[in-house]
Structure formats: structure tokens, C-alpha cells
Simulated assay, not measured.
Amino acid sequence: MRRLVTVAEMTLRELARRRGVLLLLLLMPLVFWMIRRDTYVGQSIRALLLGISWAVSTAALFATSAARELEPRLRLAGYRPHHLYLGRMLGLWALGLAVSVPFFLLTVFDAANLRYAGIAVAMLCCVAVAAPFGMLIGALLPRELEGTLLLLTVVAMQMLLDPASPGARLTPFWSSREIATWAVDHTDGGYLNRGLLHATLVTVLLIVTVAGVFGVRLRRRRHLHHAPLT
């Protein structure tokens, strides 16, 4: 457990050095909210949730890319692969929760007649999915630009697809739109249950995939070369 906390702290320190990332974390959800604020309140809530998802995923992408050079040293120091990816994920979840709190308060003071507990749950689901999702992209695409473009594509798809269509259920943040519908439109509990189930399944699937990708990559000792037999 101590090693997980150490990696989580290292992740937060690395992100704290990148002030542009922190500014993006706060600016993107706020921009998403402000764009939709003058229209239907449900649209502004859904846009805010997507902004939080984008921000946390981007932070996870940057943190994963920045840690590539440090990971071999930590492995030599005795850290196991699960220490590295789970510790980083814990740090990103903590960061995502810290970012979500002011935006939750924003909805409480700026929007009325909502199920605020549902808004909080939707934000938790966004953070839970976004951290491993961004880490997975960072592990598969080492260049930050390519990963950022992929994240942008996913968010654009999420915004354009009809939530009721079968294809929308395949997007990672579909759960937030279902829970937001329950919280804003006061629909039946089926929306909440579907959203929670989707978020749980996607989060577990992403964590398992991240574990597999990091397990394979971190066990490769590229600094070692076998001398040819003579």
C-alpha cells in the first residue's frame, strides 16, 4: 500500500509542475458548461460532465506519457507493475475528485430543481472511467498529440451520438448521460441503474486492459541486450 501511495504522490507532483495541464483541467469543463448554460439545463449538465471526462482523461494521458522514462528505474528499485499503474490511477482519481468538487458546487448554486445526488454520482462515474481510459491511450500511443486527438474524437462522438442509439452504449462515458437524464429530467430509476451498471463494467474492463498492457510493457527490459554466442 505504501508504494501505491508513493506512486500516486509522484503522479500528482508531476502534474503540478505542468501548470498548463492544471489550467486545462479547470478551463475545459467550465467552457463546456458556459457554452450550454443559456439553453436547456440538461444540455449544460451533460456538457459539463463531458468536460470533466475530457480533462481527467487528458491528465491521465499526460501523466502516463511523462512516466515512461521513470518506470524502468522504479522497476529496478523493486516496484511491481501493479504498483505503478494502480498507484498512478489512485492519484488521478484523487485529482479528478478534487476537480469535480467546484463544478458540483457550481451546479448546486446555478441550477435548480435537480437531483444533486445524481449529479455527484455522474461526476464520480466520469472520473472513475476517465482515469484508466486516459492511461490506456497513453500506454498505447506514446505521443501526446496522437493521444489527445483520439480523446477529442471520442468526446466528439459522445456529444454527437443519440444516447438512445445502440452505438452510444459503446462509448466510454455513456453512463454519465444516462445518470444526468435521471438527475435533470426526474425520470424513472432505470436510467440510474443502467448508468451505474455501464460505468462499473467499463471501469472494470479498462482497469483489466490497463493491467494487461502495463504488465507486458513493464516486463520488457529494453535496457538489457543479449550478447551473441561465439
Score class of each variant (00 low, 15 high):
167 G>F: 06
93 W>V: 14
183 A>Q: 01
31 V>N: 08
81 P>V: 04
145 L>N: 04
82 H>V: 01
54 W>Y: 12
3 R>W: 12
98 A>P: 08
43 Q>E: 15
183 A>I: 04
44 S>F: 03
211 A>W: 10
87 G>V: 11
89 M>G: 06
74 L>C: 08
41 V>H: 10
96 G>V: 01
167 G>L: 14
130 A>V: 10
148 T>H: 12
95 L>G: 10
123 M>D: 01
226 H>P: 04
157 M>H: 01
35 I>M: 15
88 R>Y: 07
25 L>T: 08
46 R>E: 15
115 R>Q: 02
13 R>M: 15
186 H>G: 00
187 T>K: 01
228 P>D: 13
156 A>M: 12
210 V>R: 09
1 M>W: 11
44 S>D: 07
139 A>V: 08
121 V>P: 01
43 Q>C: 05
144 E>H: 04
223 H>E: 11
131 A>M: 12
167 G>E: 13
60 A>H: 04
96 G>C: 04
1 M>I: 09
55 A>K: 10
132 P>M: 11
217 R>F: 04
190 G>A: 00
34 M>K: 10
45 I>H: 07
205 L>A: 15
189 G>I: 00
37 R>H: 14
116 Y>C: 01
15 L>T: 03
54 W>N: 13
98 A>K: 03
205 L>S: 14
76 L>V: 12
8 A>R: 08
7 V>T: 03
197 L>S: 01
137 I>T: 10
10 M>L: 07
144 E>G: 01
159 M>H: 11
112 A>L: 07
53 S>V: 04
8 A>G: 14
30 L>H: 06
122 A>R: 02
7 V>Y: 07
193 N>Q: 05
130 A>H: 11
157 M>C: 11
59 A>K: 05
195 G>L: 00
114 L>H: 04
209 T>F: 02
77 A>L: 15
135 M>K: 07
11 T>D: 13
111 A>R: 11
96 G>Y: 02
228 P>C: 01
67 A>M: 15
125 C>W: 00
